[in-house]
Simulated assay, not measured.
Amino acid sequence: MSDEIVFYTSPMSRGRIVRWMLEEVGRPYRTELIGFGAMKEAAYRAINPMGKVPALSHGATVVTECAAILAYLADACPEAGLAPEPAARGAYYRWLFFCAGPVEAAVTNKVLGVTVPDEPRMRGMVGYGSLEAVLDTLEGAVSGREFVAGERFSAADLYLAAHLGWGMQFGTIPKRPAFEAYAGRHAGRPAAVRAREIDDGLLARQAAS
């Protein structure tokens, strides 16, 4: 992979998930810190018209959205072993995008105080159904197994563990034993520790400036 990887992020954002992935991949990358005001400026909106981080550029390729960035890096850096073989990716895709879809939507709605009506037809219009259904499904996925997609750690595990860890830390996801065991185990990976140290150091420098 000869083209430079440029990582656009803020240390207190979902970019922390991508930082972890980049540290797992082990390829050199350059970090561009984007302030929340600068995210809405034309220069950065040329990278991501949504005006948010994270984003990744790799040569002429630009990728946004955490799940897409993780999947892209796993495919662009196969030597890191962060995606199963193509024929064995059913569970990998399932849980990677379950987290990007139902988990993200259900947790965000909880934080915003949005309640799905109990009326069956209305509930059926909401893809995740209910927060409890999402959490119960997620608990079933991580209970009694080390990895959600095969016999080794993958980008799907990284994404789920990062979401669970963040959610439990800030109270948006309840601390169920299965969640704590799964997220805690993967948060101890050397790449996860390095990523946290980098972003925490950037936060400390921002606070001191």
Rank of each mutant, 00 (worst) to 15 (best):
G144M: 06
A204Q: 12
E119Y: 09
P120I: 10
W95E: 03
F153A: 02
F97L: 14
L73F: 01
A55C: 11
A68T: 07
L202I: 14
R185F: 13
P28G: 09
A80R: 05
Y8F: 13
L22Y: 03
P177E: 10
Y182A: 03
A68E: 07
M50S: 14
P49H: 12
Y128N: 08
E79I: 06
L96N: 00
A106Q: 01
P86A: 10
F153K: 01
A162N: 02
F153H: 04
I34W: 01
Y44S: 06
G59V: 12
A100K: 04
E146G: 07
G188D: 13
F97E: 05
E65M: 08
L202Q: 11
S154P: 00
V116D: 01
L203I: 14
M39P: 00
C99T: 15
F179V: 05
M50A: 15
D136C: 05
A183P: 00
P86C: 09
S10I: 12
R123G: 05
E4Y: 06
A204I: 08
M125H: 13
R176H: 07
P78L: 03
P54W: 02
I173L: 13
N48H: 10
G26C: 05
G15C: 09
L160P: 01
M21Y: 05
Q169R: 15
T137H: 11
E32Q: 15
W166G: 06
G15L: 06
P117D: 09
G140F: 03
E146Y: 03
E132I: 09
R27G: 06
T172E: 07
T137N: 11
I69R: 00
F153Y: 15
L202T: 09
T31M: 12
E41D: 14
T9W: 04
R194T: 11
A195N: 07
P78W: 01
R185Q: 10
L203S: 12
G129E: 02
A192C: 12
G37R: 15
Y128I: 04
L138Y: 02
E132Y: 07
M1N: 06
Y29H: 13
L82G: 00
E41W: 02
D75L: 09
R19I: 04
A141V: 04
G101F: 10
M1R: 11
D75G: 07
R145I: 09
F36W: 14
R16P: 05
G26Y: 05
I173C: 03
W166P: 01
G113V: 08
E104Q: 15
Y182M: 05
P78H: 04
P190W: 05
C77Q: 04
T108V: 13
A68S: 14
I17P: 00
S130P: 02
M168I: 15
R176M: 06
A161Q: 08
G81K: 09
P84R: 01
E139D: 12
Q206D: 10
G201D: 11
A208G: 11
A141G: 04
C66F: 02
A191E: 08
